[in-house]
Amino acid sequence: MKKLLLATALGLIAPAAFAQDVVRLGTEGAYPPYNFINDAGEVSGFERELGDKLCEIAQLNCTWTTNDWDSIIPNLQSGNYDAIIAGMSITPEREAVIAFSQGYLPPSASAYLALSKDVDLKSGPVAAQTATIQAGFVAENGMTLVEYATPEETVAAVKNGEAVAVLADKDYLAPVAAESGGALVLLDKEETIGGGIGMGFRKSDDALRAKFDAAIKSMKCDGSLDAMIVKPEYFGPDSLVWGDAGKEGC
């Protein structure tokens, strides 16, 4: 028994000493402008640029890999990659199983996308992607939830009439609404769910998490993170930024 306890204690300390020369970043690759596979077949989007920049600051050699959203946490725990950077909101449920860096995007609004402005959200099912904060929100707030594996399918469900609306990050839905030619509209009602978006790490990987934490903080301090957020190809000039709140403790 004593040996077992000792082994467990060692297990908690030992991994911190691992030298990691290559860091594998895992993302979903289906959620523009956060992350998507571009037409050249490479990971692209805000998180690609951010991730590469963070690795440069932290002097890490990073490679990218994509994984289905459904199994993105189990595959992190199984060691198939070392960090999740996939537009993942920081929630208490997720914090119970993985460790988050500090947020790199402030808590952003979730919006409803529907065929018309006057739709009654209680009149039919509301679509959301499986295992997202929005799916949890729909289920907890008296609406009927219908889940889909990818963000793309949630929007298709509204077009086909399978769902009356879709609840997702506004940054994802706004371009979809803008380019639908009026067929799809954002409702005025918005929700604020979750505590910002951060990178996910294995709980045992404190050393790696600290490196990325420091890199994110340094980008907040010199304002380069805000500059990246408001780029027109990502979230645009109207989006929420860290501003002075991000510069505290610099």
Binding site: Q20, D21, T65, G79
Partner: peptide, 27 residues
């Protein structure tokens, strides 16, 4: 160090040398 089981709760941890394929390997 092989005296600690790689199965720790929900996580599966081995040292970087034991990763298959190695993290350094190409995509």
């Amino acid at each position: 160090a092989t005296d600690v089981s790689p199965w720790q709760g929900l996580e599966f941890r081995v040292c970087p040398e034991a990763k298959v394929p190695s993290a350094r390997a190409s995509g």
